[in-house]
């Protein structure tokens, strides 16, 4: 292998990911080639030097600062939703409770209507003939006072 081939393996060699056989070839080559040895040193050293740039720490209170910054950025409806979420329960639970309430109300209304129908049907079945007459002539009975006040009503033949 020439210097160009060896140089292509430098970075993998520095990363320690070169196969054992290829690593031996690199080591043997740099032992005898001054130019490649210097180059490899430069690559290694510059890579190591990057480590001198130490990490920085976040400024304390970055989480509360985040929530404050977020509150300025959210549209009004998101803020209301956020407030509701904070007041009550997680979003999933809120949705499920709301759905359960809607279902309960719908069931209550349906059952109530059904029992009213049943009650009316029972009443109608158990009514006497006299009661039926009242029901059938309900409009007439309701206006009985008015009819009686009319003069000559007795003379009208139905």
């Amino acid at each position: 292998m020439n210097c160009k081939d060896i140089k292509q393996m430098f970075f993998v060699y520095i990363d320690g990911e070169l196969e054992a056989e290829k690593e031996r070839i690199v080591v043997d080559h740099i032992a005898s080639c001054e130019k490649c040895r210097v180059q490899l040193y430069e690559y290694k050293r510059s890579w190591e030097m990057l480590g001198t740039l130490e990490p920085i720490e976040p400024t304390p209170g970055y989480i509360s600062r985040f929530w404050t910054a977020l509150s300025y950025r959210l549209p009004w409806y998101e803020k209301i939703l956020e407030g509701i979420r904070n007041l009550f329960l997680p979003r999933r639970v809120v949705y499920r409770v709301a759905l359960a309430l809607i279902v309960l109300i719908a069931v209550y209304v349906s059952v109530d209507k059904y029992t009213n129908v049943l009650r009316t049907r029972t009443l109608l079945v158990n009514m006497s003939e006299e009661e039926w007459e009242v029901v059938e002539n309900y409009d007439l009975i309701a206006n009985l006072d008015l009819l009686e006040s009319l003069k000559g009503i007795e003379n009208i033949k139905l």
């Binding site: 430069e42 690559y43 510059s46 030097m49």
Partner: peptide
Amino acid sequence: LKNALSCLI
């Protein structure tokens, strides 16, 4: 990077 840091190296 090697070129930029060569003086320091």
